[in-house]
């Protein structure tokens, strides 16, 4: 493997860009790196697109060509410096996420409640744009406050996050669907919200709810990133 190719692969990752290293295991052709910039028209465009959707490395069909697939590491944005978030942050880190918390309510978003975590005590319209929310972001709205959660969710729709979850009962969620639809969100976008948030494992305590949320996020990441 050419050092330049390895550097380019690592640079793409640092830049949160998807990239695929194409290696001929028989050494018949030199390895090459395929990114969004040069994917169109590539001889292996279709299998590479499929590999990017699945996020899985592998040999192409019956050939001797191996694709090393690199999709950006998942990040996590949590709306709400609430009790569940306190349990969620350390667990999310164990799973490899680097969580960021957004909550304009300064009584909640305090360093005492959230030591050692990126905390944005600002409204979503100010806090979110610099965070680089993207396809590879898990987005979790936990404030229960439509003034905060709704604009945040609209941002998550726009960025096509792989996971969008929002706390609230079915009744709360039905009202949220009405509001977001009135705000211009498409039915497909609204339908992407996981609500009530998390897998149904009978979670009661904040830590249990965090487990159920992270289980659902993991499921979306591993099985549904396509």
């Amino acid at each position: 493997m050419d050092l330049k190719l390895l550097s380019a692969l690592n640079a793409a990752r640092a830049d949160r860009k998807a990239a695929v290293l194409v290696t001929d295991l028989d050494g018949a052709a030199p390895a090459r790196l395929v990114t969004d910039a040069n994917l169109a028209g590539d001889a292996l465009e279709e299998p590479i697109r499929a590999a990017l959707r699945s996020g899985k490395s592998g040999v192409v069909g019956e050939t001797r060509v191996f694709l090393t697939v690199q999709v950006p590491p998942a990040q996590m944005v949590i709306i709400g410096a609430v009790h569940i978030s306190q349990a969620l942050v350390p667990m999310a880190r164990q799973l490899g996420y680097d969580p960021v918390i957004v909550d304009p309510r300064t009584a909640f978003a305090t360093p005492e409640r959230f030591p050692d975590v990126a905390l944005k005590a600002e409204w979503p319209d100010v806090a979110l744009p610099p965070l680089g929310v993207d396809r590879y972001t898990a987005f979790i709205a936990l404030t229960h406050d439509p003034k905060i959660d709704d604009p945040a969710l609209l941002h998550a729709f726009e960025k096509d996050c792989f996971y969008i979850g929002a706390l609230g009962s079915r009744r709360t969620h039905a009202k949220r669907v009405e509001r977001l639809t009135a705000a211009g969100a498409s039915p497909e976008a609204v339908a992407r919200i996981k609500a009530p948030v998390g897998l149904n494992i009978g979670a009661i305590s904040p830590a249990e709810i965090a487990v159920s949320i992270l289980a659902e996020v993991t499921q979306a990441w591993r099985q549904g990133i396509a």
């Binding site: 493997m1 050092l3 390895l6 550097s7 692969l9 690592n10 990752r13 295991l25 490395s57 592998g58 040999v59 191996f66 090393t68 690199q70 590491p73 490899g96």
Partner: peptide, 30 residues
């Protein structure tokens, strides 16, 4: 913290840039 496969490739690059001979082994089929 556990090293991800990505961190590992960064280490390979750092070693190579430091002038060391480096090899990358990849599981290609199971």
């Amino acid at each position: 913290m556990l090293s991800t496969d990505e961190d590992i490739l960064s280490q390979a690059e750092a070693w190579a840039k430091a002038g060391k001979g480096v090899a990358v082994a990849t599981v290609v089929e199971t």
